[in-house]
Amino acid sequence: MSNLKYALYTGCTAKESTPELLSSTLAVGEKLGIELHILEEASCCGASHLQDFDPFLSDVLNARNICYAEKTGYTMVTLCNTCQINLSLTKEKLDSDDVYKAKVNKKLKETGLEYKGSVAIKHFLYVLVDDYGTENIKAKVEVPLSEYNIAPFYGCHNIRPSHLHAQNNGKENPYRPTSLERLIESLEGVSVEYASKNKCCGFHVDLQAPNTSNTLTGNALVDAIDNNADIVVTPCPLCHLNMDIKQESAGKLLGRDINIPVLHMPQMVALALGCTPKEIGLKYHITKAKQLIS
């Protein structure tokens, strides 16, 4: 495996409410020899909400984020589906419209920066599955996950809209994505097939429409449970927040007892590569992964 190097855009969540996502990502990087250079200058991607308020400002800030990745010359890597899509949407807009790019660059110039469009942006899931390769991951497995039925939950913003992800980010068929299943199987886990795996968790309306949000999260979790899953795994920390924290309220709403641990994708990989539950930060979960801790 040649030396893989990336510019890591952590996003806010991995620095705040899901520190276990950052620590497990760095642990996987270390185990596999993938160099991850954290972009400490980066700011929030706007999470699609700043885009609703002020689209130009969000493009300027995301263009700045990409500038810092361009300075490293490495592919920009994200840990959150929503960061992935917002950075990619800005990139798509700037790369396809020279007039708009010049307008954004005029602002960036005042801070001595220039957006060029020279780097690709991809989620860490596809660094592992496509760049490193599942066969190579399989060769590094120390603790096979064969005891666990693992339900993959993709999160919207890595698979839709498919045209945006068709270049560098997984190229999934949004109606039949496969990367998480391939990853689970390379770790010798049992992948659970269920209809909700490519559905929405509802996170983005959590404040203004909690019933919508909790129903969508609850439906997905119940579907995973009814298909015999022991664990849910997701590449998106926003899905993780909703699915980990809202189990009690979603359960109440749906009249079901919901209690199933949800892992971040890098946590699952780190476990199979021999990291301890402590190293992957299971203590930060609200729904405790008891079967993994014991």
């Binding site: 705040e16 700011s43 909400h49 308020f53 800030l61």
Partner: peptide, 27 residues
């Protein structure tokens, strides 16, 4: 001004202060 519009606009306030979103403050 309501929970949804303030949520969208509140991102500016956080980013101005920290660069990152202040997850507790935005709620």
């Amino acid at each position: 001004s309501n929970v949804a519009t303030k949520h969208a606009e509140g991102f500016v306030r956080s980013i101005k202060k920290h660069g990152f979103l202040d997850e507790a403050d935005i709620v």
